[in-house]
Design a protein around this nucleic acid. Structure first.
Lengths: 136, 136
DNA sequence: CATTCTGTAATCTACTTTATTACAGTACAA
DNA sequence: TTGTACTGTAATAAAGTAGATTACAGAATG
């Protein structure tokens, strides 16, 4: 499932937002989150692919926001990170001979989409700038 | 994290609701979900502890709903099953010397609670009977 | 051209989930 | 009253996943 990635990505973005255009190195970021720098670079790579971050290689390189923190919604972060469904993929293949088993995945999917919609609605309303503003 | 349990529990409850008071055995249920019967019995045990299911031991034993499907909300299922936070527990201990790291878990927790609230709002409005009704 | 970074792959370790095995206890029915 | 069909639960094994680590090529800078 891998949803420890949402807090990691949000932590990275929060640091970048608080650094105001400065380039931060993966080592520095990893030191704040307290995880391995390679993981940070992987997340940065992902966030870059989603257009939220820019990064620069080489000496004095690092990462910075690709756009102002006001323009980054937490739903963008969610989309960048989310792989599996919210309440759990039943990767089970239910019994197709059972009238319930045969249909349940379809109805679960529908339920998940509805719930995810509600969640996204919340996340769309909060920007990275809003999130950062909470920090004293 | 363990959130494959939500679909399993909902599957169990849906089967019981469709069986209309009949006692279903863990083997039968496991056959529909296509998982191990012991897992089913564990989930049944959990759902029973949460007052959603009753079960009877011995020959011709099995499980049945503890109350009408109209009275079981999907939020009840969620509560019975949910252990960890929705968008991922950063079990990381962020660097307390970093102004962002020091506070981020607190703000993440707040965010999670808000989001979970939105999700529960959706789930409260749907009963097990509503869910079952979707099946043709 | 040495240094300091990123980017990325490969591997290892730890953890978590699920399956399996085992068996005691309970209810029913012949 | 005894065999059978169940539940309940613990213990262990196997499979899967996340995260850490190592390694190294390549880029930018001074």
């Amino acid at each position: 499932m891998n949803n420890g990635r949402f807090p990691i990505s949000l932590h990275i973005l929060t640091l970048l937002a608080s650094a105001e255009g400065e380039l931060l190195s993966s080592d520095y970021i990893a030191g704040s989150i307290n995880i391995n720098p390679v993981l940070v670079r992987k997340e940065i790579s992902n966030l870059r692919n989603h257009g939220l971050i820019e990064s620069k290689e080489g000496k004095n390189g690092g990462a910075t926001l690709a756009k102002p923190a006001e323009k980054i919604r937490l739903s963008d972060v969610y989309h960048a990170v989310q792989q599996a469904s919210l309440l759990g993929n039943s990767k089970n293949k239910p019994n197709p001979d059972c009238p319930v088993g045969k249909q349940i995945n379809q109805h679960l999917d529908h339920l998940y989409r509805e719930i995810e919609g509600a969640l996204l609605h919340k996340l769309e309303k909060m920007s990275l700038a809003d999130f950062l503003r909470q920090f004293a």
